[in-house]
Computed example of a mutant assay.
Amino acid sequence: MTDPVESRRYIDTVAALVAACDTWASAQFLAIDTEFIRTDTFYPIAGLLQVGAGGELYLIDPLSITDWSAFTALLRRRDLPKVIHSCSEDLEVFQVLFQCIPQPLLDTQIGAGLAGMGAGLSYQRLVMECLGIHVEKGETRSDWLRRPLSESQCVYAALDVLYLQRIYPILCQRLEEKGALSWWREDCDLVTAQAEKPFNPDEYYLRIKSLWKLSSRQQYALQMLCAWRETEARARNIPRGRVLKDAACFEIARLAPIESSQLGRIKEVSPGTIRRYGELILALVADARAADDSVFPPPAVKPLTPGQTQLYKQMKAVAEDIADELGVAPEILAKKRDLEELIRTGTFPDTLTMWRKSLIEKKLLAILENRK
């Protein structure tokens, strides 16, 4: 029998890609992976795309392809599942390269969690769990923009989609047996829906740790700083931290410096940053200092009170019992942030998929009612 890795096909012309897409159009599913570089850029630079279909393996050179229309048509086909592991970074590559998100997408990390293998399972552990094969990590950090790619790089990349093709039916069977196949689809549909939403620079500040420690005016200053930094990083295609680190944004918003000497005393703000951006940063802080409070963002969410913490522990215990009955990790059934939002607002967040809600809603709402 021919070794599928040895017989892999390397695609570096539009004609070859179109021919491959014609073949993939009749496949039951596509296993997809990407290799990319993102060391010095804001956006990932695709170095290689891997596709597995019908037992065959394909390596696509994105540095040589100028027309992706045949491939993107397949990515959008709703009757052709695309199987990817831990898809978040891959989806960014798709957004940059194709301006689209694969539909429907099935993330094997999510599927493994629902199948009872654990939350956030790495690709290496998934392969070992399902196939009993140890995956070497030697090429993970190699230069995927170098040409020609080495034999070891090509083998490493091809194996990814070889194993994904073998893992997919195993996961489907396990999830089908526990009645959770529809859960997998629902969770992955939510992931793709969120990935398709355009990012709002004004919302980045919400990711900053300890945001709640700032006053409303300081939070507004932080919002302005982070929005400016986001726009600047994207425009220059450099990592956010090359413009200004999160910690520096937080401290600038907290201290509200008036002049460059004060700005220079803030840790993580380098002389180079002050030379390039100092006047602009000080102007943003001054605008926040003078702004009317009607423009302030809603107050940041504070940590739970002692009473709310006790309520959270009750809810978590209930969720753990249900998760144990289902054979899934508790954090897969009910994430901490979902329980906290329920406690604060009395309603489930929109990100809580229907299958979860149907399993935990009545019991958790009963706890809230008893508390009242």
Rank of each mutant, 00 (worst) to 15 (best):
Q50N: 02
D67I: 00
A25E: 14
S26A: 14
E6M: 11
T41K: 10
F94E: 03
P44T: 04
S88A: 14
T72L: 09
L30I: 11
E56I: 07
Q50F: 00
L75D: 02
I65A: 03
A31G: 01
R8M: 15
T41E: 01
E92P: 08
W24L: 07
A73M: 08
Y43S: 12
V5T: 01
D12Q: 14
S7Q: 15
D40C: 11
Q95P: 03
L57C: 09
L63A: 04
V96Y: 15
V51M: 08
E89V: 03
H85P: 01
F29D: 06
L57F: 07
C100W: 11
P44D: 05
T23H: 13
A46V: 03
R9E: 10
Y43Q: 12
V93T: 01
E89A: 02
D33Q: 03
R78Y: 11
A20F: 14
E35H: 08
Q99P: 06
L97V: 10
Y58M: 09
W68I: 01
F71I: 08
V14R: 13
V14F: 12
P81A: 05
V51K: 07
F36M: 00
P44A: 06
C87L: 00
L30F: 10
R77P: 00
T66I: 03
L17V: 04
R78M: 08
R9V: 12
L91F: 15
A31M: 05
L80C: 09
Q28G: 10
E92W: 12
D12Y: 13
C21L: 04
T41G: 07
C100A: 13
S26Q: 15
W24A: 07
L48D: 06
G47P: 04
L57A: 01
H85Y: 00
F71G: 07
S69R: 12
C100D: 11
W24E: 08
T41L: 05
A53S: 00
A16L: 05
Q28L: 10
P62Y: 11
L30A: 08
L59F: 12
G52Y: 05
I45V: 11
A73S: 10
W24Y: 10
T23K: 14
T13I: 03
L63K: 13
P4Y: 08
S69Q: 04
L80Q: 08
D61S: 04
